[in-house]
Simulated scan of single mutants.
Amino acid sequence: MKVLFGSIRFTLLLLLAGCGLSMGQQTGAVSGEQNGVYRYQKPANDGIGKTYLGREIAQVMGHLGAAWLERPEREQEERTDLLLDALSLKPTDVVADIGAGTGYFTFRMAPKVPKGKVVAVDIEPEMITDLNNTKKKTGQTNIETVLGTITDPKLAVGSIDLALMVDAYHEFSHPREMMTNIVRALKPGGRVVLVEYRAEDPNVPIKLHHKMSIAQATREMKAVGLSLKTVYRKLPQQHVMVFQR
């Protein structure tokens, strides 16, 4: 069954946060709200009514739909093998898998960085529990799990070579704050990789707000000091967009 909801990596906390902070998030998280970065409108069927640089942020789903991330046909449908190759990982890289979910990419990237590590970030405790259980079962030692927030992935400044977001960024309720913190976590020369369903292609069977165009992604990354370096176009339905400072 084709899933038309985009990524299910981040929890419904993100949706609740579309109207402000939820569940005791720190006050510093509202800087984008205070500075007028976001606008509000009547929600679309698959949006939350909160817009950022002309794009309505998409609705999200929680951990109960996580089985879709591990569906057997995913590699063939999305050619995740090609995506992993496109990342051009080095053995020493430290990679942050932002919105790691069940760790589909986390556990596939870890063997490619034997002298580095993968930091799996999610804001949902259930996902972190699943990640830790799988880590224990597989015996992979170069994986670290981090419980982030709706505005902060909780990564140390200058600690990562690459931040990967697969079908997740378009659902961030506070994209400006999240990306500002991700950029701070990059090492010199570090990369941000966004993998998003192609909004330019009407044949991609995904709801409108769960797609992103290259132009829109470039606009949003420019707002945090990143510029588009390359686009990998060989996946069946997704862009792989690489940004750097």
Score class of each variant (00 low, 15 high):
Glu126Thr: 14
Glu124Pro: 01
Met179Tyr: 01
Leu186Arg: 01
Tyr104Glu: 02
Thr106Ala: 03
Thr102Trp: 01
Lys90Glu: 15
Glu70Leu: 14
Leu155Ile: 06
Thr151Asp: 13
Gln34Gly: 11
Asp97Leu: 00
Val204His: 00
Leu164Arg: 05
Asp161Ser: 12
Ala66Cys: 09
Asn203Arg: 13
Thr80Pro: 01
Gly116Val: 06
Asp93Ala: 13
Gln76Ala: 14
Val95Phe: 06
Gln59Lys: 15
Tyr38His: 09
Gln76Tyr: 09
Gln244Gly: 09
Val166Leu: 05
Leu208Glu: 12
Gly49Cys: 11
Leu194Ile: 07
Pro236Tyr: 00
Leu64Val: 07
Gly20Glu: 04
Ile128Glu: 13
Leu64Arg: 07
Ile143Leu: 10
Gly148Phe: 07
Gly24Trp: 05
Gln76Trp: 12
Arg71Pro: 01
Ala29Phe: 11
Gly18Asp: 07
Tyr38Asn: 11
Gly99Lys: 05
Thr106Ser: 05
Glu73Asp: 14
Leu164Met: 07
Phe172Asn: 00
Ser31Pro: 02
Val204Gln: 03
Thr92Pro: 00
Ala217Trp: 05
Asp161Cys: 05
Gln25Gly: 14
Gly54Thr: 12
Glu200Phe: 07
Pro236Asn: 04
Cys19Phe: 13
Ser227Trp: 05
Gln216Phe: 03
Gly225Arg: 03
Asp97Lys: 00
Phe172Glu: 03
Glu177Gly: 15
Tyr38Phe: 15
Leu82Ala: 06
Leu15Arg: 14
Glu126Ala: 15
Leu147Cys: 08
Leu226Ile: 00
Glu78Val: 08
Ile128Cys: 10
Gly101Val: 02
Thr149Asp: 10
Leu194Arg: 02
Lys42His: 14
Val192Cys: 01
Ser159Thr: 00
Ala156Asp: 10
